[in-house]
Design a protein around this nucleic acid. Structure first.
Length: 348
DNA sequence: GACGCGTGGAA
DNA sequence: TTTCCAAGCGT
């Protein structure tokens, strides 16, 4: 009984409170049989992996304006797509995005598969994204479980088992609420609830449409769910970044295709290690024989370590580099854009 | 199952 | 300032 009541209450809430987002078809259109473009749903879902709506939105608008269809994207050069993704982070997503677009164009006639299994077989589509595209674009009754849904389930049922070990149980609980009725809206309603009401911190329980079902609220400390295992602290690493200029141009390199910042343009750097670099060591690792001088340093936080880049600056020449005008530095990942700006500006 | 993989905004 | 984190995926 409570499951059907909960579903009706949440869907009713969604009909009145759904967020308006560039990639979303509203409930009214959905009711009229209008479904969202699978390409736009997929693109938005990939961009939103571990990424906030405000950060992803301008990228989504830029990509869809430049590449309106999956076939357009499939035909784009690698470097154009990587440059357009610069600043959004998790660059393996961009590599898989292109691989997926080309797979759809080559193996599926430019049309996204309309089954969860078919979607799951595409590069970059894991359990969440395949389920989300299936539900939102094709109205398939998939079990869409992201961080929002896990949080909502952990609170509704006051799940004591901490994450990440508790994920299977949370997924099971979510799956028990899926029906053939409005699966796309159901998935988005659950995620909107998590994003706007059932937030990680300071949940707005007094505005929650399903508060009467919430076991966590009944405990008096809903924000203590989901329980989480302690995580390891982030180590610190040091590297030297070399800002070599030739007039208005800056020397860049293309990073190896896999690993950290894989496939992206970058400043030449030394190895990154646990100890700070001495001036002698920094000069020995330089990409060119030039009149290097120290111009300070920048710090940047990655997911699993903090990096200090010691900056050396020189005017000169070098082989094996890509000369790029200063105005094109927005093709760099944030860490190198930050370092390049500091290196070009500092007059230490 | 654990780990590697970005970023910028909020508290 | 520091911490936490936001619609995960691949290995």
């Amino acid at each position: 009984m409570t499951a059907e009541t909960l579903r009706a209450q949440l869907l009713h809430w969604y009909d009145a409170n759904a967020r308006s987002l560039p990639w979303r078809t509203g409930p009214a259109e959905g009711a009229a049989g209008v479904r969202s473009d699978p390409y736009r749903v997929w693109l938005s879902e990939v961009m939103l992996q571990q990424t906030t709506v405000p950060h992803a939105t301008p990228y989504f608008l830029k990509f869809t304006a430049r590449w309106p269809t999956v076939s357009d994207l499939a035909a784009a050069p690698d470097e154009d797509v990587m440059a357009a993704w610069a600043g959004l982070g998790y660059y393996a997503r961009a590599r898989n995005l292109l691989a997926c677009a080309r797979a759809v164009a080559r193996d599926h006639g430019g049309v996204f598969p309309d089954t969860e299994e078919g979607l799951r077989g595409l590069p970059g589509l894991g359990p969440y994204t395949a389920a989300a595209v299936g539900a939102i674009a094709f109205d398939l009754p998939t079990n869409v479980v992201d961080g929002n849904v896990e949080r909502v389930m952990s609170r509704l049922f006051a799940v004591e088992q901490p994450l990440p070990a508790g994920k299977p149980e949370l997924k099971r609980l979510a799956g028990a609420l899926v029906r053939d009725d409005r699966p796309g809206d159901w998935a988005q309603a659950l995620m909107d609830l998590g994003a706007t009401i059932c937030r990680p911190k300071s949940p707005l329980c007094d505005r929650c449409p399903v508060a009467e079902h919430c076991a966590a609220l009944a405990t008096g400390a809903p924000d203590s769910f989901p329980r989480k295992s302690a995580k390891a602290e982030r180590p610190h690493r040091y590297g030297v970044a070399y800002v070599l200029t030739r007039g208005d141009e800056v020397a860049l390199v293309r990073r190896p295709p896999k690993g950290l910042l894989g496939g992206m343009l970058a400043l030449p750097t030394s190895e990154w290690r646990a100890e700070r670099w001495s001036e002698t060591e920094a000069l020995a690792a330089a990409p060119a024989d030039a009149p290097w001088r120290g111009v300070g340093e920048v710090e940047h936080g990655f997911t699993h370590f903090t990096l200090t880049l010691q900056l050396l600056r020189a005017e000169g020449d070098a082989g094996e580099v890509i000369w790029s005008p200063r105005r094109d530095l927005d093709a760099l990942p944030s860490v190198f854009l930050k370092a390049a700006k500091a290196g070009l500006t500092n007059l230490l």
